[in-house]
Simulated assay, not measured.
Amino acid sequence: MAHSYGTNMSIHALTRTAHDVDSFISFGSSGYPDGLVEDDDLGNLHVKDAGGGHPAVYATDGFWDWTSNIGRGWWSQNSFNPADPGSGAYIFDSDGTGQYLDASPIDGEGVTSHSRHDGDGTGYLDLDAQAFITVMEVLNGQHDRIDWIAEPADEDGWDLEHHHPWRKLERSSTWRNLEERLPWSEERE
């Protein structure tokens, strides 16, 4: 397991180790290093298979965790977000029971900051956090209890049925059409 910049360092290690680890879980990632992993392909990481030819790589990023976005900014060399659908990881929710499109059978509080433990709110590893409870389910092999936000499906694509509304919007044709009309869209190309 790794948090924040620790996920970056772990990815470096997972491309260099001689032996596969059983699984890798990242939460609140500040981004994986560009060039070490590519979208939809985490096969160069030394992580055992979770089934179906996909590595046992898991990730979450709380809605209220603004700090992790800073590490993945356009200026960064760590822009790969493992908690985005299509990353190649199994993505799980950390926003709390009943939040957004959460259909997870796992109860728990939503993450309220970038912290692992948050005295004023809920951190990723607080005992009552949905993220922590899900991590425990992953480590105990209880994958059937987790309603993944996104998971590797097969060669034809990804199961994106349960992802968050803003991610759905980003990939919608309405968003792409709107984005094409925005004044800065030409500058980005």
Rank of each mutant, 00 (worst) to 15 (best):
T122G: 05
G110E: 00
G88T: 10
T112G: 06
W74A: 12
D107C: 06
T67S: 12
D120G: 04
D61C: 13
W75S: 07
S87N: 06
E109W: 03
D84A: 09
D107R: 10
T67A: 14
Q99D: 06
D65G: 05
Y124S: 02
G43P: 07
S115W: 04
G62H: 02
F80H: 10
W66D: 12
I106A: 00
T67M: 10
S68Y: 01
V47M: 13
L45F: 14
D61I: 01
P55N: 13
L101G: 03
Q99T: 10
S87D: 05
D118Y: 10
D107I: 07
T67N: 11
K48D: 12
R116P: 02
W75C: 08
I106L: 02
F92K: 03
G123W: 02
P105R: 07
Q99E: 08
D126M: 04
G71D: 15
F132K: 03
S79I: 11
H54W: 15
S87C: 05
P55L: 13
G108P: 00
Q130K: 00
S113T: 15
G119M: 04
A50Y: 13
D49A: 04
F92H: 02
I91N: 03
F80Q: 06
D95A: 04
D84R: 08
G110V: 02
S113D: 12
D107Y: 12
L101W: 03
G98Y: 07
G43E: 12
T97Q: 13
Q77I: 09
P105L: 06
H117A: 12
R72Y: 07
V57G: 04
G123F: 00
Y90L: 03
G119D: 07
Y90M: 01
G43R: 14
L125I: 07
N44V: 15
S76I: 13
H114G: 14
S94R: 00
L101Y: 06
G52P: 09
E137H: 09
G121A: 13
G62N: 01
G86W: 04
G86S: 11
D107P: 06
G98V: 05
V111D: 02
G86D: 11
N44S: 15
G51Q: 10
H114S: 12
L45I: 12
K48S: 10
G43Y: 13
S87V: 05
Y90G: 00
Y100E: 11
A103L: 08
G53T: 14
G71Q: 09
K48A: 11
S79R: 15
G86K: 08
F80E: 06
I91D: 03
Q130G: 01
H114M: 13
T60H: 03
F92T: 02
T112M: 06
